[in-house]
Design a protein around this nucleic acid. Sequence first.
DNA 1: GGACATTTTAGGCAATTAGCTAAATGCCTA
DNA 2: TAGGCATTTAGCTAATTGCCTAAAATGTCC
Lengths: 105, 105
Amino acid sequence: MPMNKVFDALSHPIRREVLELLKGGGMTAGEIADYFPVSKPTMSGHFAKLKEAGLIQGENRRGAIVYTLNMSTLEEALHGFMGRMGLAREDDGDVPALGKKELSE
Amino acid sequence: MPMNKVFDALSHPIRREVLELLKGGGMTAGEIADYFPVSKPTMSGHFAKLKEAGLIQGENRRGAIVYTLNMSTLEEALHGFMGRMGLAREDDGDVPALGKKELSE
DNA sequence: GGACATTTTAGGCAATTAGCTAAATGCCTA
DNA sequence: TAGGCATTTAGCTAATTGCCTAAAATGTCC
């Protein structure tokens, strides 16, 4: 998934909080919406943006839509950017962007 | 620094690329601007947003302004969000957000 | 102090975003 | 199939964003 859309989706605090909420498991659109002080249509727009970025997906379940987190997309974008910034995870081993020569000058 | 402003600043690809560029050391506003296909005033606006988020700082040096990266702000925001999402770094040890009881059900 | 280079501010414009209410759609269940 | 609940779409408004050019500020150096 394009990193641009992921970071765009992450730029709104409500959308970040939705992801955090879904960490605990799938929730219906209405359940999620009840956590936030905005209208359901507004929340629907936030869901659309998160879905477009590949961060969540919706599934029809008995008349309601259950949204679930797509952790791998988030992980990929975040780790991708951190890697490019030299903020790699410890188990990644080395720092390919900066070799010995550049470090010593 | 407020995480909201950091993620807002990170939402534009040019601003993320500026950070990446500054990884290699301080650069003047003009030098940075030359890397991007937009006008200098537009870049100045991007710098302002990065500065407001605490991601960079500017210093006067012989008639030019040298911007430098503030890695700790980026690290704090990114690790903070990842921690809340359960995407902790490997050396963080455990996963405080989900204990044994919740895992087994 | 004056000319020059660098960067930001001002002002303007088109597009996008975030929010709302009201209406339409989807989908169960009786 | 009709009613009802859940969700999205439509249509609107206000505010913000991102970009531009032109002008102003800031600071250097002669």
